[in-house]
Design a protein around this nucleic acid. Structure first.
Lengths: 115, 115
DNA sequence: GATAGTACTTTCCTAAAGGAAAGTAGAATT
DNA sequence: AATTCTACTTTCCTTTAGGAAAGTACTATC
């Protein structure tokens, strides 16, 4: 028998984790979802609520998130024309992830500053 | 008074989330932690357990994770010299994040294939 | 002296992410 | 005709991530 030392299989966890990372990867997608979730529905408000984001990056990420059915873009036909961004209900399923990341980040800051 | 329309403040959430993302960003760090956590402690085993990873990328990410005190690198002085990678206890604090990402990924696959 | 085994490193390359600064579009107001 | 407002777009550039293929270092065994 070709008995080899085998690595332990962990694909059952790695694969879904990577599926998720493919959707919410990068520096900006979760911050944008958080910002919209908290009530910022206009391009400029979202931009101002996220330090360091440029309009180019914001526009690109908003398109990505729209394609992933996480946010909804609505044109409001007033003067001047406004655009409203809202979370799709599906975006709420990201809440546990956001809280897990927030909690870890808060604790990590304590750990790092305690050093 | 210079009353402006104000964006809603969400920095209390965005900042810790970004702190976390700074540590576990990229395609490979969480898969590596999962692999080591499940029992793969050797370079080659970790490499084989994560589809698509190259030795160069694995070596770099292992160094990053070691610097962040998430894994421990131990030299075993046998012949041939072996290296053992283990999770630091601190890496266990990432478990809630990993499960949240795994659960979301599993559900997302259902959602996407149902379309 | 050659070979094997483990854990990488090196080189070279492409693609994607990110950023600064300025510009544009379309309609209403002055 | 010029200005204002919102929501972007455009250009140009730098940085980072990722990947393929081959090579290296060390030591023990044959």
């Amino acid at each position: 028998m070709a008995q080899k030392k085998m690595h332990c299989d962990c694909l059952a966890t790695i694969k879904p984790v990577r599926d998720t990372l493919d959707v919410i990867n990068g520096k900006w997608k979760l911050p944008i979802i958080i910002s919209i979730g908290v009530g910022n529905d206009r391009f400029t408000d979202i931009q101002e609520s996220i330090p360091g984001i440029t309009p180019k990056v914001l526009a690109k990420e908003l398109k990505d998130l729209e394609q992933h059915k996480l946010i909804l873009r609505t044109v409001i036909d007033e003067y001047p024309v406004k655009i409203s961004y809202q979370l799709e209900p599906y975006a709420d399923t990201l809440t546990p992830i956001i809280y897990a990341l927030k909690d870890w980040g808060l604790n990590h800051r304590k750990v790092v500053t305690a050093e």
